[in-house]
């Protein structure tokens, strides 16, 4: 490019090779090669294989038969598979509650409370415990006559009135969702808190001088500043709740009507060796997650508007109008 343009047109290969442009590409390619290779080998190739498998009737080993779209038809026709998506609704409800709680606690901590770091650490701690261990903790927590039952009887509840937390189909999904809320609230809170820290504290002072109470400060200062983090967390929790796996798998093994989509997928793939069907399920789930994510993005763009965008839009409109006027004059 700039450094070697003296006798353009007659460059030897060596000169070309030494030129800055080529060298720059070389450096870029060399540095990108390893990560791209890893990405390709461990993400895209397996994914392409999965798409391919979803059109076959196959086991892990043994012959494969091409069956076209039959697996996809089965995903939508079988009540156990499609019904399991409704179990995810519980987890979505849990996700919303979890974000609200996290936002609440994070806001409390932004306004200087006593023992802030202890609270923060205690709330964040569950996230550090591995999901399988959390499952086992709660398996015993909910078991008949164990932790939860004991606590409730201590507070004077009649043991005969305590429901079977994991067996009663009216409440067992709530029990499971509660474990995942318990686990992730702290992590969401820390994320929110991190974003809130970047808000200039002078703004709170200025706002309170103008007579804004804490709610106003939250609504008009904090919320707009951390909007992108809220959206991100919501997207992550909704897609996470569609793919909820650990609590039902460890605690109830997906029985008693608690089987989420992933648990059913795991069962079909590993117990019945219906790999093709499980791959089709995975792809259907991917599509559902994409749809959910896009829908949320759109929702936040149009429905959950903090007003600032209107201003800037209005400003753009005004400028355009002015330009028109000038042009017209």
């Amino acid at each position: 490019m700039a450094g070697s343009g003296n006798n353009a047109g007659q460059q030897t290969f060596a000169q070309k090779f030494a030129s800055r442009k080529v060298q720059r590409y070389l450096v870029i390619v060399t540095f990108m090669f390893v990560p791209l290779l890893l990405l390709l080998v461990f993400t895209y190739v397996p994914f392409a294989k999965m798409v391919q498998f979803s059109f076959y009737d196959m086991k892990y080993i043994g012959a494969r038969h091409f069956v076209g779209l039959k697996n996809y038809v089965d995903v939508f026709k079988r009540s156990d598979i499609f019904g399991s998506l409704f179990v995810s609704v519980y987890y979505m409800g849990g996700a919303v509650l979890q974000l609200a709680l996290a936002l609440f606690f994070a806001t409390m901590m932004v306004f200087k409370v006593k023992g802030e770091s202890i609270f923060k650490a205690t709330m964040f701690f569950p996230y550090l415990v591995c999901g399988i261990a959390v499952g086992f903790i709660f398996k015993f927590f909910y078991a008949r006559g164990y932790v939860l039952d004991t606590i409730l009887t201590m507070f004077g509840m009649d043991p005969d009135n305590i429901p079977l937390w994991l067996q009663d189909q009216k409440i067992n999904n709530f029990s499971l969702v509660a474990t995942s809320v318990w686990r992730y609230t702290g992590q969401n809170m820390v994320l929110f808190l991190g974003a809130m820290m970047s808000v200039d504290t002078d703004l709170y002072e200025a706002a309170s001088l103008d007579g804004a109470n804490k709610w106003h400060q939250f609504r008009y200062i904090i919320m707009p500043s951390i909007k992108s983090i809220i959206v991100l967390n919501l997207v992550l929790s909704i897609s996470g709740s569609l793919s909820a796996f650990e609590p039902p798998y460890v605690i109830t093994n997906g029985n008693m009507g608690t089987g989420t989509y992933f648990v059913i997928m795991n069962r079909l793939a590993h117990e019945n060796q219906r790999v093709g069907l499980a791959c089709a399920m995975a792809i259907v789930l991917l599509v559902i997650i994409i749809i959910c994510t896009v829908a949320q993005k759109l929702f936040f763009k149009y429905a959950f508007n903090d007003g600032t965008e209107d201003e800037s839009k209005a400003a753009v409109k005004r400028k355009k109008l002015e330009a028109k006027k000038k042009g017209g004059a």
Binding site: K139, F140, A143, R144, Y146, L164, N255
Partner: peptide
């Protein structure tokens, strides 16, 4: 058992 879901 009363609560099969929490059998061990």
């Amino acid at each position: 058992e009363e609560d099969p879901a929490s059998s061990d």
